[in-house]
Simulated assay, not measured.
Amino acid sequence: MSVENRSVTDPSGPPDDPSARELLQSVVEVARAIFGAQASSVFLLDEEAGELVFQAVSGRGEEFLVGRRFPADRGIAGWVAASAEPMIVDDLAANASFDRSLAQSTAYVPDAIMAAPLMDDDRVLGVLEVLDPAPQSRSSLSDLDLLFLFARQASIALRIVTRQRTGPAAGPGLAPERRTEAAELVRRLERLLVDAPHA
């Protein structure tokens, strides 16, 4: 089964608000830069449909993957969403959870992957993926520690987006308090990128 595309007006599709889109895009762009990766993605878990939806993409596939979806029980992202545990795989060819046909449907088949769940308390909101990270991290932290740190930032971003979309006061644009949270998150992401020592 290939990755499916649906209208962006789908309630679980990409956020309509430009501020929300910019916030999620900043998350994947900084993640990709910090890990020196070929691509980075944020998926939203659509529990009702049992699917994962590409919400933001940086690098390979960014021109066409946003809004596409695939079954939430497939691939590394599906395993991470179901288990609520992170996964780092250096050799995907030897990993049973890797769904090569699913990767091929996105027009990019990675050799290595890092993935972490995006949480709101005990609930999985989605998954952060980093594809083909550089062998040498630009941080003194271990890759897993850095992935945890970054997933926490991405979780905040996704929580802002999902609450803005589904909250009782949801309307056009982020509410003022959400704009303040979003602005602070972007500043933190920028600091994380600037402070990461080069290898």
Rank of each mutant, 00 (worst) to 15 (best):
P135E: 15
G67H: 06
S142N: 07
A84D: 14
V57A: 08
F64R: 06
S2L: 12
R6P: 00
F35L: 11
T9D: 14
L193Q: 12
L128H: 05
A84G: 11
S26P: 00
V194R: 10
A112S: 15
G59I: 08
L44N: 03
L118W: 02
F148V: 14
L23H: 01
W79V: 07
I113R: 02
L174N: 14
E63Q: 15
E63N: 10
E4W: 00
R165S: 12
L24S: 06
A112W: 06
S2P: 14
D195M: 10
D145K: 09
G13I: 04
S58R: 01
E51L: 00
Q38C: 00
D16C: 01
G50T: 12
V53W: 04
L144G: 13
S137M: 14
P18E: 15
V194T: 14
G59D: 12
S19D: 15
R123L: 07
V30S: 13
E184Q: 11
E177C: 00
D10W: 02
P110I: 02
A175K: 11
Q164W: 02
A175C: 00
A84S: 11
D46K: 03
M1W: 03
S101H: 06
L185H: 02
A93T: 10
E22C: 03
P176Q: 00
E62V: 03
R179C: 10
G173A: 10
L147G: 13
A154D: 11
G126K: 07
A183D: 14
L189S: 02
